[in-house]
Amino acid sequence: MWMQKGFTGQPQAQRMLLRMTREGRLPHAVLLTGMPGIGKKALALECAKAVNCLSFRKEDSRIAGGALTMACGQCLACTKIARGVHPDVLVIAKDGTSIKLEQIRSLKERCRVHPYEGQRRVIILEDCQDLTEEASNALLKILEEPPASNLFLLLAPEPYSLMPTIVSRCCPIRCRPLDPQDVAAMLQDELSLDPTRAARLARLSFGSLERARTWAREGLLERMEAVMDRLERLLRCSMIEFFQDVAQWAKETENLEQDLECIKFAVREVLRNTLRSSAKAAGAAGDSNDRTPWRQLPVDSLLLVLEVIETAAQHQRAHVAKQLLLEAVCLKIKDVVYGQGGKGHRYPFPRGRKNLSL
């Protein structure tokens, strides 16, 4: 674990949970939302410690530097939770690709009995967006008539990814992206990266430690440079060469969704640098990572490229033909960079198995 004393990745959410816990106002169900890799599960475990800590006092909530800690971290309950062996802290994860009805039924049986040794049983449900319809309905029945001494902590990217009736029975708390400086420090500590590389990965992760780790371990910075070099060659070549090169790209790539993500993050990095440069005095130099022709594009055009990539990712998940999708993406981007740059449908995306509304 990257945190050494307490959890400091989500200070605002932590303060809210701590205040409700100390004032006895913690509801039976809390929904923690936010992008993956920002510490929602770690925050849920700290909350589990807070409600079951054996020696924590209210005045202990302030430690050096103004950071917060929700529990002592040293008592028997805290150490058991940290090791994942506390009998009253249950973590429900996906079984395959979803959380299934049998898992929720088993959970319901566990909730009928009193906690074994803690003050409250804490149930942490990861990836609630992947609940099956039957599992969602079963969970809803539990939340409608919550068993005593049970605390449900639901984790999901967005509230709209769950049934509205489930959301309405939870106290929603939004978790924010992590500070890039914290992400960079964690990468240096965990993976022994040099400060410059760690800082760039932290910026590209947009606050997600999980994404930054993935980019670092899989060498996606180098992959992004290769993808962008290839895209820029396509934007400048003749149309005959264009279709030949796209066909070769479609044949060679093993993960088109990852290639699209590389383009998206490269353009987002340029957009960030463009906005930062525009805030400086006229003629200020851009970031060394800016690329031609991207750094000459206005903000509206960069946003339009991002929209193209997001739409392409939706079609890719709908199992469209890889080469046709790449052709449409590159032609649309070529039109934005060197053409009219309008929002027309001159190069429509191919249709997949799902009827997507565009």
Rank of each mutant, 00 (worst) to 15 (best):
Q4A: 15
Q4N: 14
G6V: 03
F7W: 14
T8Q: 10
A13F: 00
Q14K: 13
M16N: 13
R22A: 14
G24D: 03
G24Y: 05
L26G: 02
P27I: 05
H28C: 09
V30R: 04
L31E: 10
L32D: 11
G37H: 00
G37Y: 05
G39V: 01
G39P: 04
K41L: 12
L43S: 05
A44P: 04
C47R: 02
K49Q: 08
N52S: 05
N52L: 05
R57K: 14
K58D: 15
K58Y: 12
T69E: 11
Q74F: 11
Q74V: 15
Q74D: 13
Q74E: 14
A77N: 12
C78P: 08
C78G: 06
A82E: 12
A82I: 02
A82S: 15
R83V: 08
G84Y: 02
V85N: 14
P87G: 06
V89I: 07
A93K: 08
K100N: 02
C111L: 15
C111G: 10
P115N: 02
Y116S: 12
E117Q: 13
Q119R: 15
E126S: 01
E126V: 01
C128K: 02
C128P: 02
A135Q: 01
I142L: 07
I142Q: 01
P146A: 06
P147K: 01
S149K: 14
L151V: 09
F152Y: 00
L155A: 09
P157R: 09
Y160N: 13
L162I: 01
P164H: 06
T165L: 04
R169S: 08
C170V: 02
C171A: 09
P172L: 01
C175I: 08
P177G: 07
Q181V: 15
V183F: 08
D194E: 13
P195F: 06
L201S: 09
A202G: 07
R203S: 11
L204T: 04
F206T: 14
G207L: 01
S208N: 01
L209F: 08
R217H: 11
L220N: 11
L221W: 07
E222C: 09
M224A: 11
L234K: 03
M239W: 12
F242S: 06
D245R: 14
V246S: 08
A247W: 01
A247R: 13
Q248T: 15
W249E: 04
E252V: 10
N255S: 13
L260T: 06
L260H: 09
L260V: 07
C262F: 00
V267G: 04
R268H: 02
E269T: 06
V270F: 05
T274D: 03
R276E: 06
S278T: 11
A282F: 13
A282V: 12
S288P: 13
R295D: 12
L297H: 08
V299W: 06
S301W: 00
L302P: 01
L303P: 08
L304W: 12
E307G: 15
V308M: 07
E310W: 11
A312L: 05
Q316K: 10
H319N: 15
L325I: 04
V329F: 10
V336H: 05
V336P: 08
G341I: 00
G342K: 01
G344L: 10
Y347Q: 08
P350R: 10
R351N: 14
N355Y: 07
L358F: 12
L358M: 06
L358I: 15
